[in-house]
C-alpha cells in the first residue's frame, strides 16, 4: 500500500573522494512502502549514495530529508555550503534508517539473538526482556529461531545475512537500506536472503536496495534507478528500465549482466 508522503528525500547530493567526484548531484524521492532498487556498474557511486542516506558517508553538498525534515544544518562557509550534522542527531537518524551490509558485519563475540538484541538494549534502551522478545520475533521472521544461540562463525553466509536483517529490523526502522546484500554469498545461499527481502517488501517496508539481482528487481521493486558515473541515468518501473531501457548505456549495462 503506497502513500504519497515521501519518507526519504535526497536533494543535490555530491560526494568526492580524494579528487574523484563520485556523486555529481543526485535527486531522489522515496515514498512510504516503496521498494527502490539501484543498479549500476562498480564505481557508479551506488554504494556511496546508499551510505550517504544514513551518513556513513558524509555528503559534501546537498540535503537529506527524513519525512520532510532535513538532517543537519547547511552552513555557509568560505568554501561554499557545508552540511553539518551533530552526532546525537545522527544517532536518531540511524534508529529510523536500518542498514544491511554486503559483508554482514555481525558481532562475532555475540550469539545471533544477542546480535539482534544489541541495538534495542544499547541504543533504544529497552529492558532485556523486551529486547529478548523482540529479537526472537525478528529471528522467527527471517526463519532462524532455531539458530538463536549460535555464534555467527557457526552460521552459513545466508544465515548470517538473515540475522543481520533481523538485527536491523529489531530497531523498527522506517526505512531499510541494503548494500549489495547477496554479493558476498555463495550462489546457492542467495535465494534464502532474497526471499526474506521480498517478504519484507510485500509487507510494506520502505526499502532501498543496491543489487545486481535482476530477478529480485522484477519481483519486488516498485522503482528502479540506474546510476551511471555519479548521476541518475535512467529510472522508472522495473518493466520500463529492465525490459525496455530507453538509453544506450542502460542497455549496454544490462547486456553485460546477462553473462552472469
Amino acid at each position: 500500500m503506497e502513500s504519497v508522503t515521501p519518507v526519504l528525500t535526497l536533494e543535490g547530493i555530491h560526494k568526492t573522494f580524494g579528487g574523484h567526484h563520485v556523486l555529481k548531484g543526485i535527486d531522489l524521492e522515496i515514498r512510504t512502502g516503496q521498494t527502490v532498487v539501484i543498479i549500476g556498474a562498480s564505481g557508479s557511486g551506488k554504494s556511496t549514495l546508499l551510505r550517504c542516506i544514513n551518513f556513513l558517508e558524509h555528503p559534501d553538498a546537498g540535503r537529506v530529508l527524513l519525512a520532510g525534515e532535513p538532517i543537519g544544518r547547511t552552513v555557509r562557509g568560505r568554501s561554499g555550503e557545508r552540511l553539518v550534522v551533530h552526532e546525537r542527531e545522527l544517532s536518531e537518524v540511524r534508529r529510523r534508517v536500518g542498514m544491511v551490509f554486503q559483508h554482514f558485519n555481525l558481532f562475532p563475540h555475540m550469539t545471533a539473538v544477542q546480535n539482534v538484541m544489541e541495538g534495542p538494549t544499547s541504543v533504544l534502551r529497552l529492558s532485556r526482556e523486551e529486547a529478548h522478545a523482540r529479537a526472537h520475533e525478528n529471528l522467527a521472521k527471517v526463519g532462524l529461531s532455531d539458530k538463536a544461540d549460535q555464534y555467527p562463525s557457526r552460521l552459513s553466509g545466508g544465515q548470517q545475512q538473515r540475522v543481520a536483517i533481523a538485527r536491523a529490523l529489531a530497531m523498527q526502522p522506517d526505512v531499510m537500506l541494503f548494500d549489495e546484500p547477496t554479493s558476498a554469498l555463495d550462489p546457492e545461499l542467495v535465494g534464502e536472503v532474497l526471499l526474506v527481502m521480498r517478504d519484507l517488501s510485500v509487507e510494506g517496508m520502505t526499502m532501498v536496495v543496491v543489487t545486481h539481482e535482476m530477478g529480485f528487481a522484477f519481483a519486488a521493486a516498485d522503482h528502479v534507478i540506474f546510476l551511471h558515473e555519479g548521476l541518475v541515468h535512467e529510472e522508472g518501473s522495473p518493466e520500463a528500465v529492465l525490459r525496455e531501457p530507453q538509453r544506450e548505456r542502460t542497455r549496454t549495462f544490462l547486456r553485460g549482466l546477462e553473462h552472469l
Partner: peptide, 9 residues
C-alpha cells in the same frame, strides 16, 4: 559501521 548504523555512539 554496523554499530554506528544501529545508532550507537
Amino acid at each position: 559501521e554496523a554499530g554506528r548504523a544501529l545508532g550507537m555512539r
